[in-house]
Amino acid sequence: MDFLGISLPSYSLETVFGSAISGVFLGAIYALVALGLTLIYGVLHIINFAHGTLLMLAMYAVFFLWSVFGVDPYLAMLIVVPGGYLFGYALQRSVIGRTSHGRDEIILLTTLGVSIVLENFALFAFSANERNVQVPYDFDGIDLGVVYIVWPQIAALVGSLLITAALWCFMRFTDTGKAIRAVAKERQGARLMGINVEHIFAVSFGIGTACVAAAASLLAPTYAVFPQVGYLFVLIAFTVVVLGGMGSFVGALVGGLVIGVTEQIGRLYLGESLGLITISAIFILILLFRPTGLFGQRL
């Protein structure tokens, strides 16, 4: 095969299909990280630069729960998800909200500052070494013929789908979810209905952080933890958010899957490092034809 003058290796359909499937599992995690980012963007209208750093911290939490207390990384979700929510809530309410004085450009810089502080804290406290959670079942799985899928991949996909669905229901059917959607589009109207806008901002930030905490649990069995690990995922999550449509949940899910599959197939043909180019290529293509992303604007 030949692509832009570069001759590509040719693979059997099975191999390509196999890559696509493992891309779906990877994409599910991207979707989950993007979900938190898109929620925070949709409600507070800011890009949360600390998102990747929060993912990193959550991964350390999962790692230490496992290494110190022997807690299984999936079981750790019961601790890190509520913990992430509380941490995110407190961070928004006490630092980000307070320093910003309601000005979006300041919030942006504050999240950047928070991420720098937290990352250096991690570097100082945990060192730059990579650490791995080992679970006895991380190479068990099922053979689909074209591809061998390990349980952690399945858990990532199922977990992401369940969390996305749960969050969608929460936003549709609970008063707090509705208040979040109201604040996203009409803050003053929301205030006049007795909605505490500052509280809702913090709740949204808390839920966004809980999403990365869940992602951290799902990632732990397959990915190493180190202080910069967040960037890897959050850069891709930014792409997913723009691709799916800023503020759209379904967009985050579909965008995550599209990017995951694209990345895996790109790696297959172009190799480990060059493969990531395909993400940017797909990104530019979709934005050329759909500037508002796949799923426009709606929260």
Binding site: D175, A179, R181, L192, I195, R298
Partner: peptide, 28 residues
């Protein structure tokens, strides 16, 4: 309770949901 100038309804939500949020805080 104030019904503000310019309505300020929640444009991204259904009529039903708008009414529901009217009782977010009171008469729930």
């Amino acid at each position: 309770i104030q019904v503000p100038e310019g309505r300020r309804v929640f444009p991204n939500m259904s009529v039903r949901e708008n009414l529901e949020l009217g009782s977010y805080r009171r008469a729930t």
